[in-house]
């Protein structure tokens, strides 16, 4: 088995010379993303507190940054980038589809129950 690695990230914007170098590069990228998350989490800028799609903009940013991190961990640390297209789709599409489905149903239901509580049909604040 030859172990060829695709050495470019960010759609070819950054191209590394060796696999080891790419690993350190990805580490720097992940650290930066985490640092941004932590700083935003501590200071919580007022401007990002607006509601977008029934959630705070800040929370959307956190979720998007998390998915970015998950992408680089899977693609570069777990070598998904070097696997065949079929294996990649089998793993990623299955998981993404099922997770989205589950999250949608549960959050929808949770929001509905919250509505029942807050519209006063059930008293629980005593």
């Amino acid at each position: 088995m030859g172990h060829e690695h695709k050495l470019e990230i960010l759609r070819g914007l950054i191209k590394f010379k060796s696999n080891t170098q790419k690993i350190w590069g990805v580490l720097i990228l992940l650290s930066i993303v985490t640092a941004v998350e932590v700083v935003l989490g501590i200071y919580k800028p007022e401007a990002l507190m607006t509601q977008v799609l029934s959630m705070k903009l800040l929370n959307w940013i956190f979720i998007i940054l998390t998915i970015v991190k998950a992408y680089y961990i899977t693609w570069d640390f777990m070598h998904m980038r070097d696997e065949t297209k079929a294996l990649r789709r089998m793993v990623v599409w299955t998981a993404v589809f099922l997770i989205c489905y589950l999250v949608f149903i549960l959050l929808q239901e949770g929001g509905y129950i919250e509505g029942v509580y807050s519209s006063g049909f059930v008293k629980r604040d005593f």
Binding site: A95, I99, L102, G110, E114
Partner: peptide, 21 residues
């Protein structure tokens, strides 16, 4: 295993949305 963890996290999200206030 990822689906197991998503089940837990989604359940967390469910309870959180239920008691969002």
């Amino acid at each position: 295993d990822a689906l197991t963890f998503s089940g837990f996290l989604a359940a967390y999200g469910f309870s959180r949305f239920k008691f969002i206030e």
